[in-house]
Design a protein around this nucleic acid. Structure first.
Length: 402
DNA sequence: AACATTCTCAACCGCCCACTA
DNA sequence: ATAGTGGGCGGTTGAGAATGT
């Protein structure tokens, strides 16, 4: 290739790490910090490439890693952020504290992607697969414009996520002695960390509907037989999809960064794939239902709650940012790193819990999603996306999120 | 019980970017 | 301006586990 390998690979060990190697790496980093990864293996007495050490540390040995099943809230966050950011796993991981990009990527590829596909949702675009027709009806131009806008928004979020990472790194390196680490980081070979109790989640309405369908089903005594760990907080989650309305007023200043104020007004139109599709009925079995009656109960609950899916909603998002604001935020990082974790958590919580109260009310009341769900759907999603983007875009310089 | 198939996820690979000399 | 280096990211692989026949 065009460049030399990251290290001399002759004689270096590959493959799974042994507990002894893990311990060596842990001990070394605990004592000295990682410093230069390239130099680390020899100093630590490891027959490994520096890159391999780095990966092992980041993806497995780091003490602030949460392992085990993804909670429903985490699944929702991943799906939502993936809709926004695409396969930018590190950016997504920024908003899932204690989860690594690798773990998120794996989970997406092995679970969530398949699940969305089964529901007839394109895991790449997060649109119903039969939505392709929509772009062939003469509105492709505006759709393309909107796609462009979305890409900008996505790129900007990624850039800001990068700032978070960078500031984190600065924080980490400034504490590289790792003295704040627990004296004995949990052995990765013994890690079976239990999930924290599920927090009431704020989610898109399709997710809410799914929850409703599940909770109804499980409350009727089926929680233990749903398979795939469904009895716990590992729920099968659908997602909403984002499409773009035609009457968008993109006023996005995409000039080459001149520092002028730029305003983006984006209207998202969300529509959920229909779960009445016969095609999907067979799929329910594959999700682990033991017998026909359980399956039927679950389907009924789900279908009832998903009956709003013909509704469409629009929402407006006003986003304002400037090159100056990004700089300000960047500068601010260096002074307020300590708040990052809190702020990120706040962002995640915002994603998840913003509407928890409303949700608990509606869940408790067993409301019929069909009646009035259109406006709820509108409001929830509007609030949801506005919350995200307002937070992201207009967080003042004293905000430490980005 | 034995074998085949599918699934999971830790680890690797190659590329890219930022930094520096 | 250029090349070398380190670090990071996303895609892919493959061994072991789980499940099915």
């Amino acid at each position: 290739m065009g460049r030399s390998p990251c290290c001399d690979k002759v004689g270096l060990k590959k493959g799974p790490w042994t507990p002894e190697e893990d311990q060596k790496l842990l001990d070394y980093i605990k004592e000295h910090g990682h410093g230069s990864w390239r130099a680390l293996p020899s100093k630590a007495g490891l027959q490994r490439c520096g890159k391999s050490c780095r990966l092992r540390w980041i993806n497995y040995l780091r003490p602030d890693i949460k392992r085990g099943k993804f909670s429903l809230q985490e699944e929702q966050t991943i799906i939502q952020l993936h809709a926004l950011l695409g396969n930018r796993w590190s950016a997504i991981a920024t908003h899932l504290p204690k989860r690594t990009d690798n773990e998120i990527k794996n989970y997406w590829n092995t679970h969530l992607k398949k699940r969305l596909a089964k529901m007839g949702i394109d895991p790449v675009t997060h649109k119903p697969k039969n939505d392709a027709l929509l772009t062939a009806d003469g509105h492709s131009k505006s759709a393309a414009n909107l796609s462009h806008i979305a890409q900008w928004e996505s790129a900007r979020l990624e850039a800001e996520a990068r700032l978070v990472r960078e500031s984190r790194l600065r924080t980490t390196s400034s504490h590289s002695s790792l003295q704040q680490q627990p004296p004995n980081p949990p052995s990765p070979h013994l890690l079976t960390k239990p999930e924290p109790p599920a927090i009431p989640s704020r989610s898109l309405d399709a997710l809410k509907a799914w929850n409703h369908g599940w909770s109804r089903s499980s409350m009727e005594g089926n929680s233990g037989v749903l398979g795939h760990g469904i009895g716990g907080d590992h729920l099968e989650s659908p997602t909403s999809t984002l499409t773009f309305s035609e009457n968008v007023r993109p006023i996005m200043g995409t000039t080459g960064g001149g520092g002028e104020n730029s305003i983006a007004i984006i209207e998202f139109v969300g529509s959920s794939s229909s779960c009445h599709d016969h095609h999907h009925r067979d799929e329910w079995k594959e999700e682990g239902f033991g017998n026909a009656s359980q399956l039927q109960e679950y389907k009924e609950g789900f279908e009832n709650s998903m009956s709003f899916t013909s509704h469409e909603m629009t929402l407006s998002i006003e986003a304002t940012w400037t090159a100056e604001s990004l700089r300000t935020r960047s500068d601010h990082h260096s002074n307020n790193n300590d708040h990052n974790a809190i702020a990120e958590e706040g962002f995640t919580n915002l994603l998840l819990n913003n509407n928890a109260d409303e949700r608990s009310q509606s869940d408790g009341g067993g409301e019929d999603s069909e009646n009035g769900s259109g406006s709820d759907y509108y409001e929830d999603n509007k609030n949801y996306w506005n919350s995200i983007l307002n937070l992201v875009n207009s967080s003042p310089s004293d905000s430490s999120i980005f």
